[in-house]
């Protein structure tokens, strides 16, 4: 059974004047042990999708099932199986880090060792500090720790790496990966491409409340009908274009884009031409695009 199954999920907000669906017929699934990333610009509907899965928002259409149950009516049962990190969620007033972790582990009935959770999040030395005196990154790591006190079958994380510094981010991603490798499903929202590239098994790109693209990282980034390379700036691209019989351009100084099918012959021709001119070649990328490029193409074309 999938951890999460979302089918044709449509959510409308209560403002009839706007008439805009916050989510429009969104479908995807999260399997146990899988890390799925919801990627999208602000306002794309990422948080709305999470909130529907958490049972806060009733769908106007379609369905959401978490372990086969409707989260809107079975939240208490599901709360034993999931851990949730809401976006910018605080903790009850006046609590210290240690008190918060103890409270949430007791509410969930967490069976593990909370000291290990605190040390994995790098918070062991801050146990006596109050929430309000933590930095943004520390609050995020505490928030993740509280989510980990929940059930281990499913982790729902809303922007877990936002406001977290580089070291903290590696900790966060490491913790998420470990949860998935022990069999829990993970759904995270993010707008960071490097998060997705590091940990996601599947990516769902949301734009304007609809799924713009979905697949594994390889599926999304392969199939580009182009070759990109870096070399000294200001080469005569027209000459290379004539030689290859296709369009060649220099979108950024020193970055070249060859619009041709990425076959070995084309790559050989490019490197031969560069060698003839005595130029070095930097990065060469054939048949794949970075996730960022895919994302910008999709969201750019639709906006």
């Amino acid at each position: 059974m999938p951890a999460i199954e979302v089918e044709n999920l449509t959510v409308r907000y209560d403002r009839p004047t706007s008439g805009k669906a916050a989510l429009d017929k969104v479908s995807f699934a999260v399997e146990p042990g899988q890390i799925v990333a919801l990627l999208g610009p602000n306002g794309a509907g990422k948080t709305t999708a999470l909130e529907a899965i958490e049972g806060y928002r009733s769908p106007s259409g379609g369905s959401v099932q978490v372990f086969g149950l409707d989260p809107a009516t079975h939240r208490s049962e599901l709360a034993h199986r999931w851990g949730v990190m809401p976006q910018a969620g605080g903790i009850p007033m006046g609590l210290t880090v240690g008190e918060a972790v103890r409270l949430f582990s007791e509410l969930h009935g967490y069976g593990g060792n909370t000291n290990e959770l605190l040390s994995a999040a790098g918070l062991s030395d801050l146990k006596k500090r109050r929430w309000r005196r933590l930095s943004g990154g520390e609050q995020q790591r505490l928030s993740l720790t509280l989510a980990l006190c929940g059930g281990s079958d499913l982790l729902l994380l809303d922007e877990p790496t936002a406001a977290v510094d580089a070291e903290g981010r590696q900790r966060v991603l490491g913790i998420v990966r470990e949860r998935a490798s022990s069999g829990g499903g993970v759904l995270i929202t993010t707008h960071r491409f490097d998060d997705v590239e590091q940990i996601a098994d599947r990516v769902i790109i949301l734009n304007h409340g609809a799924v713009a693209a979905a697949g594994t990282l390889d599926e999304l980034t392969s199939g580009g009908q182009e070759i990109r390379f870096t070399a000294p700036a200001g080469l005569t691209v027209a000459e290379l274009g004539a030689k290859l019989g296709c369009e060649v351009s220099e979108p950024k100084p020193g970055n070249y884009l060859v619009q041709t099918v990425p076959e070995p012959q084309a790559v050989a021709a490019i490197t031969a031409w560069l060698a003839d001119q005595g130029h070095t070649i930097g990065h060469l990328q054939a048949g794949t695009q970075s996730l960022e490029e895919v994302f910008l193409q999709i969201t750019g074309a639709q906006s």
Binding site: Y56, I91, M93
Partner: peptide
């Protein structure tokens, strides 16, 4: 607590 989102966080526990 509601303003800080703390009540919402309690809601996702059992």
């Amino acid at each position: 607590d509601r303003g800080f989102g703390a009540i919402k966080r309690l809601a996702i526990t059992p």
